[in-house]
Structures are given as C-alpha cells and as structure tokens.
Amino acid sequence: MKKFFKEFSKGIFKENPTFVLALGLCPTLAVSVSLLNGLGMGIAATFVLLGSNIIISLIRNFIPEKIRIPCFIVVIATFVTVVEMLMKAYSPGLDRALGIYIPLIVVNCIVLGRAEAYASKNNVFNSLSDALGMGIGFIWALLLISGIREFLGSGKLYGYKLIKGFKPPAIFILPAGALLVIGLLLGFFSLLKEKRK
C-alpha cells in the first residue's frame, strides 16, 4: 500500500509531467483556452493513460523487445479511438473545440513515455497508481494553465464573468499567449526551486 501511494504521489508534484518533465506540451498549449476545454482534455488523456498502462503492464511479458513501440502504439491508439467515439456521441461541442488534439493523444509523450518507462517494467497494480498520479498531475497543470489563460484572456472563469469593467488582454487566448504563460510558469517554478536550495 505504501508503494502504491508513493507511485501515485510522484506524478502530482515531484515528477509532474508538464512542469517537471515537460512532456505532452502540445495539447497542454493548444487546448488550454478555457477551463472546460482543459478539463476535457485532461480527463480524456487520463482515461487513455489508465487504459494503456493497465493493458501494457498485463501483456508486457508477451511483447517482443524489438517491436514494443508499435505494440504500445496500437494499444494506445485503440483507447484513443474509444475516447474519440465516446466524445463524438456524448459531447459533440467539446469534440469540436478540441479538434485534432483528441486523435493526437496517440502521440502524447506522456502516454507513450509512461508505457515505455513504467508500465512495461512494473506490475498492474503499480502501473495503475502510476497512471492515476500522472493523470492527476496532468489535469491540475492543465487546469492551472487554462484557468490563467481564460481569466486573463477573456475575463471569465469556467464561462462566468468575474470582474466588471476589466478589459481582458486577448493575447492570452491566442497561441502566442499560451507560449508566454508556460514560459513564465516554467521560469517561476525554477525560481522556486532555486530559492529552496
């Protein structure tokens, strides 16, 4: 149980996929224009991560070493297709908003990275907790970034207008604003790290 918790908690802070490992930045930047989109992306990616980590760690002993990457990709792509179809059926609005970034979860470095670095070497139980931790780490990072961008760029949070008379700088919902926010956040986190030393 102790190990379970350890594997679970590392993804949230110490090895946070976005801010520490800097993995899977493409969807993080592209969809984080509003909290709703960020949440949708986070949940979709976590679902794929959970599924692929479980399956891969189950079949890890049957996969030949040489063709393991294509095998992982097939497993991941299957889960992504499931997510795609579910999303088209149950929330077509979100599906349109996220666009090509849903099929692109296939090549999200977090998912493949965890499959390669963790699930292919550990048992199901630990892989599950690893996926959960990484997924939650990814979700909170997405929520933080999309919260900042939605608030600054359109003056709203989760679609609700907060302050009257605030003229939001639209730059933050533009792609360039995403790069700026992530750059400043990464700088801020490395400043914190330096301070703690």
């Binding site: 003229k167 700088p169 639209a170 730059i171 533009l174 360039a176 604003g177």
Partner: peptide, 8 residues
C-alpha cells in the same frame, strides 16, 4: 505587438 494583440 503585445498591445495590438491584446486590445486591437
């Protein structure tokens, strides 16, 4: 360009 992108 920051101003143009923010408050066109």
């Amino acid at each position: 360009i920051f101003l143009v992108a923010s408050w066109p």
